[in-house]
Computed example of a mutant assay.
Amino acid sequence: MISLKKNIVLLCLMLSSAYLGSTARPTEQIAEMRPQVSLAELIPTTFEGWKAEPSGGGQVVNPQQEKMLNEVYSETLSRSYVNAEGYRIMLSLAYGRNQNDTLQLHRPESCYPAQGFVLQSKRSTELTIAGQQIAAVQLETNLSQRYEPVTYWTVIGDRITTFGFSKKITEMEYAWHGQIPDGMLVRVSSIDRDSSRAFEAQKQFSEQLIQAVKPEHRNRLIGGNLTTTQL
Score class of each variant (00 low, 15 high):
89 I>H: 10
48 E>W: 06
115 Q>E: 14
21 G>H: 02
113 P>Y: 04
60 V>S: 12
86 G>V: 01
104 Q>F: 06
75 E>N: 06
45 T>W: 00
118 V>K: 07
25 R>Y: 02
39 L>G: 03
124 S>I: 12
42 L>Y: 04
57 G>Q: 10
94 A>K: 09
36 Q>K: 15
20 L>C: 03
74 S>E: 07
105 L>H: 02
34 R>P: 07
109 E>F: 11
78 S>W: 10
77 L>E: 10
55 S>G: 13
27 T>N: 09
30 I>R: 13
88 R>T: 06
41 E>S: 08
31 A>R: 13
87 Y>Q: 11
31 A>V: 13
53 E>S: 08
39 L>M: 12
123 R>M: 09
20 L>S: 07
66 E>Y: 05
114 A>N: 08
104 Q>V: 09
119 L>K: 13
27 T>Y: 14
97 R>I: 13
47 F>D: 02
21 G>A: 10
96 G>T: 08
59 Q>V: 09
73 Y>G: 03
58 G>L: 05
113 P>K: 05
122 K>A: 15
44 P>V: 11
79 R>T: 04
114 A>R: 04
119 L>F: 11
100 N>Q: 12
37 V>Y: 12
123 R>I: 12
41 E>D: 15
88 R>Y: 00
92 S>D: 00
106 H>A: 11
83 N>Y: 00
105 L>Q: 05
118 V>Y: 05
85 E>F: 15
45 T>G: 12
72 V>E: 15
42 L>K: 10
61 V>N: 07
29 Q>K: 15
54 P>N: 13
109 E>Q: 09
21 G>Q: 02
97 R>H: 12
115 Q>S: 14
24 A>D: 11
27 T>A: 10
117 F>D: 03
78 S>M: 14
90 M>G: 14
91 L>H: 03
99 Q>P: 02
42 L>D: 14
100 N>V: 03
59 Q>D: 15
99 Q>D: 05
67 K>R: 13
111 C>F: 00
